[in-house]
Amino acid sequence: MTQKIDPLKKMNWFDRIAHPGQFLKWSRYLILPLAILSVILFGVGLWFAFFNSPEDYQMGDTVRIMYIHVPNAWLSQLVYVTMAVSAIGTLVWRHPLADVAMKAAAPLGAAFTTMALFTGALWGRPTWGTYWEWDGRMTATLILLLMYLGIIALWRSFDDQLRAAKLIAIIVLVGTINIPIIKFSVDWWNTLHQPSIVSSEGLSMPASIYTPLLIMMLAFTTLFALLQTNAMRTEILRRKADRQLRKSLNKENG
């Protein structure tokens, strides 16, 4: 008599929630709450940004560009850190969801970095008198965008996604050196960029400006969580469909 073995029973809780099939099941319950939270946060954040925050004493109304520039700049780096953690998961633990997360994050990172550069240029022209300056932070952010685009191209150039994952994981980890350069470039080199708004001396801006900034950062971060979850679900389904396609082709070819 054969006994049916459930492989999930042998897994610990972490492996169980991170198993691609299980991830598809439980992550569907995250989509709607994250979407609702995003809409609320964007609504409140935009209301604060346009109707309940003062103009800056130096920059005037252009300070309102900060409410979309800083969240996108923050996400351009957070997404890369997410990819770096996933790269470690791919190389060290060979976790089945790690390379799915790494692949899903790259286009999102490219989009957030593009928006950070775009809004930065539009903020820079009236504030500094130039759209672009080859300073440390802007140049390193442009390099970050090129890295995202290169990683997306690499994923597309491989048929074998598991082989691609190992190579891309190494590239992602090497590229991590760019993140502290972006973060600390304003302290290391002369730049038009202002230093960090949070320091050991506290906040360098009034609460009336910091509040909409914080809400917009939460809104964009929630949006990233939503899009990343859905993109991971998409990638799992794509691999499942590809496997089924290969199976049916093998059947046809005998």
């Binding site: 005037g60 560009i65 979309i68 809004t119 539009l122 903020w123």
Partner: peptide, 18 residues
């Protein structure tokens, strides 16, 4: 809509683009 000052076009284009 509030008055966005002399650099309104930069602010509007930034928000529209995003």
């Amino acid at each position: 809509m509030i008055d966005l000052g002399p650099h309104a076009s930069f602010i509007i284009i930034a928000y529209l683009g995003v």
